[in-house]
């Protein structure tokens, strides 16, 4: 049986416009990952370009649009995504395409940097580690595991519209990761920086982010937590209401 793979091709030096190119390949006997299939195609046509590194779903390099849904090629088996014998591979939507499946992720990374994705503490670090109870540490589960693959942010219509002003689900998940960390003492400042009409409030709960996250994370829930902290303040820190004033 044959697979029909339709691949988004664009080489800025040769092509005026991007186009879809069809490849016919023999359907592998085993169920392989989309990345394995791409590697097979690249052996025959070395010009095909995509990013890849760990090939096990932890580095976040190979996010792409697979038959209409964003995902990581290396952990998406063909059996899960084939429609009939058809497979369509496109770059992540909404970001400028550099070549083929490779997008320019600058805007995505800028949003990440904007939320100050590092622990900030007013207290001098102790000689040993800062203590944290297992229960407090549990609050970081479902947040710190993000691999910055951009599958979520590039599936979000709000991010498509305002990639420069709406922080986007990936970076907001990380914003909450630091808001939720008992070791971080800059909650007030972090919230103040998110209180404008765009940074958080452009999220309308469309939930595409949750639908596509290859790590099973829930940015929408984190955004909800941020919104409620913005409105009511964090109880323990007696944070005043910011935003929407």
């Amino acid at each position: 049986m044959e697979l029909s793979v339709s691949l988004y091709r664009y080489n800025p030096e040769q092509d005026k416009f991007p186009y879809m190119k069809n490849y016919k390949v023999k359907k592998p006997e085993k169920d392989i990952m989309v990345l394995d299939l791409l590697n097979m195609l690249k052996e025959d046509d070395a010009t095909i370009s995509y990013r890849r590194s760990c090939r096990e779903g932890v580095c976040g390099s190979d996010g792409m649009n697979i038959n209409g849904k964003n995902g990581l090629a290396c952990i998406t088996p063909l059996s899960e995504v084939l429609k009939g014998n058809k497979l369509e591979l496109r770059p992540l939507p909404g970001l400028p395409v550099i070549r083929d499946l490779i997008v320019d992720m600058t805007q995505f990374y800028e949003q990440y940097e904007k939320i100050k994705p590092f622990l900030q503490s007013d207290s001098e670090p102790p000689e040993q580690e800062r203590l944290q109870s297992p229960q407090d540490r549990d609050k970081l589960d479902g947040l710190y595991e993000c691999i910055l693959c951009a599958c979520c942010s590039t599936s979000c219509p709000s991010f498509w519209w305002n990639p420069d002003k709406f922080v986007g689900p990936a970076a907001l998940l990380q914003a909450y990761r630091f808001l939720a960390d008992t070791r971080d003492t800059k909650k007030q400042e972090r919230l103040e920086e998110l209180g404008d009409p765009f940074s958080v409030y452009r999220c309308h709960g469309i939930m595409n982010c949750v639908n596509v996250c290859p790590k099973g994370l829930n940015p929408n829930k984190a955004i909800g937590e941020i919104k409620s902290m913005l409105l009511t303040g964090s109880k323990e820190d007696k944070i005043k209401v910011v935003g929407l004033e």
């Binding site: 590092f118 580690e129 800062r130 203590l131 960390d181 070791r183």
Partner: peptide, 14 residues
Amino acid sequence: EHMGLPFSRFENGR
């Protein structure tokens, strides 16, 4: 740890 690495913890917080 001071930089923020989210280590797992024992009951005593270490």
